[in-house]
Amino acid sequence: MTLSDGDLAAHLADQAGRILLQVRASGMFSGKSLGKAGDQTANQFLVHALREQRMEDGLLSEEEKDNAARLGKERVWIVDPVDGTREYGEERTDWAVHVAMAVNGAPVLGAVALPGLDVVLRSDQPGEVPPAPEVLRMVVSRTRPAPEATGVAEKIGAELVPMGSAGAKAMAILRGEADIYLHSGGQYEWDSCAPAAVALGWGLHASRIDGSPLVYNQTDVYMPDLLICRQEHAEMVLAQVRALS
């Protein structure tokens, strides 16, 4: 099977999502063991498939031991087999599978599957983002909303929308369910690469919360903050972040 990079990313995200649903439906696991089984099973599929289909490219996965060889590659696949393990285990829909490719550090290609909704959103097949409502909606963590996010929301009069995974939050903007995703509580490259790539492909703004570009395939894969929103809201949000600091 010969697939374009975009088709490969979307196919892998979709198939990994289906595998995860089967693992959960098997009834063999519960609680933390379900999350672990799902993560490991989906990771094995993604890692083996990428090494088979794109053996010359680098690879970074949350569930795989890091290999410094990726640092010498221009093209690096960055995957998160289950983004939102808690939500996956609780049989919610706000979890995701991330498959992305960074080229020279830039998030140029991505697919985010929302298996609970049977949806895959792709950077290379953008749709039209619904217009923003009068009162903006900011997605925040269900369990620990970032102080910067709640502070900015208060300043701009935005409604807070609690949600699970990073991928689900970012895709909520594309789907017209939210308008701003501001995160400052700490993430890793696999948490944001695919959502950022898809958001950028759909014409949205995606950056660090100081406005600087998102750069991937770094030695240190910690990426503490992220802003995804419509282009027309970016400077307003960034200005409010600066005012809070």
Rank of each mutant, 00 (worst) to 15 (best):
R24L: 06
P131C: 06
V161T: 12
L12V: 11
G164W: 02
H11Q: 13
A132D: 13
D210G: 08
A170G: 12
R242L: 05
A158T: 03
L117M: 13
A100M: 00
D80H: 08
Q218N: 11
L117Y: 06
M223G: 01
R144Y: 12
L226G: 06
P133G: 15
Q15K: 15
K73Y: 11
V103L: 11
M1K: 10
L20V: 02
C193G: 08
G58A: 08
A197W: 07
L226M: 13
K32H: 15
V139I: 10
L136I: 01
A168F: 02
G31N: 03
L121G: 09
G31C: 02
E62L: 00
L182D: 02
E177S: 04
H205F: 15
V97D: 00
E134Y: 08
S33G: 00
E159W: 04
L238C: 02
Q44D: 13
G116W: 09
R142F: 07
H233F: 14
P213L: 04
A149E: 10
D118C: 07
L227Q: 03
D118W: 07
A153L: 04
V198Q: 01
L20F: 03
E148D: 15
P131W: 11
W190G: 02
V23K: 03
L117F: 08
G84W: 00
E52S: 15
E134W: 03
A106G: 06
A25L: 09
R51Q: 14
S123L: 09
F29Y: 15
Y88K: 02
D57Q: 06
A16K: 03
K73M: 14
E235A: 13
R142Q: 14
P147N: 06
L244C: 05
S30C: 00
Y88W: 01
E128K: 13
A25Q: 14
L60S: 03
E56R: 14
N104L: 07
